[in-house]
Design a protein around this nucleic acid. Sequence first.
DNA 1: TAGGCCATCTGGTCCT
DNA 2: AGGACCAGATGGCCTA
Length: 350
Amino acid sequence: MTKSYTEESMVLESQSTANWTDECHSSQDEHDMDKKNGMHDDMQKEMEDDEEGMNRLDEDDDDEDDEEEEDGDDTKPKRRGPKKKKMTKARLQRFKMRRIKANARERNRMHGLNDALESLRKVVPCYSKTQKLSKIETLRLAKNYIWALSEILRSGKSPDLMSFVQALCKGLSQPTTNLVAGCLQLNPRTFLPEQSQEIPPHMQTASASFTAHPYSYQTPGLPSPPYGTMDSSHIFHVKPHAYGSALEPFFETALTDCTSPSFDGPLSPPLSVNGNFSFKHEPSSEFEKNYAFTMHYQAAGLAGPQGHASLYASSSQRCDIPMENIMSYEGHSHHERVMNAQLNAIFHES
DNA sequence: TAGGCCATCTGGTCCT
DNA sequence: AGGACCAGATGGCCTA
């Protein structure tokens, strides 16, 4: 393993590996993990040395004071300033010990972070055990998801399918976009830039109106593609509007869609007071059948009409969804449970 | 083979 | 002093 060597670590390197070769009561867990992760041979050797050093720490610690006084080299002129402590064997070992413990903590911390990320993967659309979203894509999708749901809550209107998916995929890489589309049983090409002209006029309108995502990834500081390639403001060449007003057309369109012949239900908020969160987009043509997509979250026990009823006109007014079109999230029931819990929390906390 | 993603180590900084 | 957090560096794995 190549490391960024510091003075201290180089000393460590040269002294420790040569001297501490005896008893090794190393942690089997760490070794297994390292092997699993394809740890370098010399890295493993290093770890072994570290652990040996740890085991011998107690013995050597007793000698520390004596060794610290061994500084007596009279031939060199004395240096001013704070005396730099000599890196004695004991100090080296203490340093190594600290380093080992710090490494372990850091590993645990990162594992905790990864666990949290894994939890996040499970509650955003497109959870798959087999094809995991990358960390960065998970965060981006989650952010888009939260944003989209917030807008639904804020406006109290159902978004149309295409715009919702576009919102989800905003700023995501092409592969992730495909993945999300696949999970939602959509054809990703239907909302990719080069295919935009194939989108039915009403969908183009809806999509175009959803282009003012305030947190677009099309910013100079971000890495070059594939990131940021899905910003629909450049997809549809529509001028971004200011946040807030920008979404209104999107939800207005959704409203229109919901009252169009494609929807047999009345005007309906996607998320009712009872926590019934549902989209409906019944395909009205062969073309649209490709986009069959639904979400249906049943959140029992959420605040009743007295709670957040004011947000939405009536909990009984919903666009219900044909169950045959239910989205194909892996672990959908789990997803639902988590969502229910989250909605519960949201409604009960506010 | 290049690029993306990831796990790990490491040193620095801040806080208790 | 020690722990948490962070960012940089590095090397392994995987895929187009």
